[in-house]
Each structure stands twice: as C-alpha cells, then as structure tokens.
Amino acid sequence: MEIKLKLNGRNITASVESDTVLLDFLREKGCLSVKRGCDTSNCGLCTVLMDGKPVLSCSALAVRADGHEIYTLEGLQEEASDFVGFIADQGADQCGFCNPGFVMNTIALLRENPDPTDDEIRAFLAGNLCRCSGYDGQLRGIRNYLNSKKG
C-alpha cells in the first residue's frame, strides 16, 4: 500500500507491504544508522523519533508511519553533535553498535527534560542496552555535556 510521510524533513511517498517494519523501510531509504539488534523490542538500537517521540522501528509497521514525521540520526546530526563528543571522550562507545539508539533516545530525553538528574537519565535510557560499557560511560558523558552547558 502507498504511504506518505515526512522523513528527516523531506516529504516522501512509497509503496510498502502490510507487514514491512519501519526499520526495513528506513534502511531501504538509506537511513543506515537504524540497525537491527535484538529484534524483540528490547535493546533500543533501532530507536527513531515518530512525531518527536522515540519508538522502536523494529516493531513498528511502516504503514503506521503514514501521515507522520520520522526522524533518524541522519536527520539529527547537528543536534547530536552537541553531546556525542562528550560520550566518546568517556570511551562509552567501545564497539559503537548501540550508539545510534543511545543518541536518538538521548535527543528525546533532552528535548523532554533539558536538565535531567542522573536517575532521570538512567530511567530514560533504561531501554537502551550496551554490551560493552556497563552504562557509566554514557552517563558520565551526558553529565559532562550538561555541566558544560551550565558553564
């Protein structure tokens, strides 16, 4: 069926099968930051923003994006560049596989809550799994970024 959506700020029209998941559709459209991790809605790697809210593209039907606005990391690089260097400085992205999901969900967090506590950061990012780092690196990176904004 035909769907119309706004992808990373551009209006597009596409034909998709009823059971195509959003992740596969986005990768076909060249958004290769969107990756398949667990494929069971648990790891957060495939996070994209639908109408500004973080969702799991591995489990969302592409047809449900019809009439909505989708952003992937490809469309939010400038916003991400504000803080990803702070995360990298902590060595938090050891293998880097989980990074796109972490970055997308951090963008959602900071839009909703520009000055989160450490517990609020942990709670918001609880749905993003990392098998390298133990999560402290990401937390320290985001904390350092927030502290840098306060001068």
């Binding site: 809605s41 648990n42 957060g44 996070t47 809210k53 973080p54 969702v55 799991l56 489990s59 969302a60 969900n105 959602a108 967090l109 709670a123 918001f124 990012l125 609880a126 749905g127 993003n128």
Partner: peptide, 12 residues
C-alpha cells in the same frame, strides 16, 4: 509501568 522495557517500548 516505569520498568516495562524502556521509554521507546512504552511509547508504543
């Protein structure tokens, strides 16, 4: 609901 997977999951 706060510990049901993650924010992304709960948004769906």
């Amino acid at each position: 609901v706060k510990d049901i997977v993650g924010v992304q999951f709960r948004n769906m």
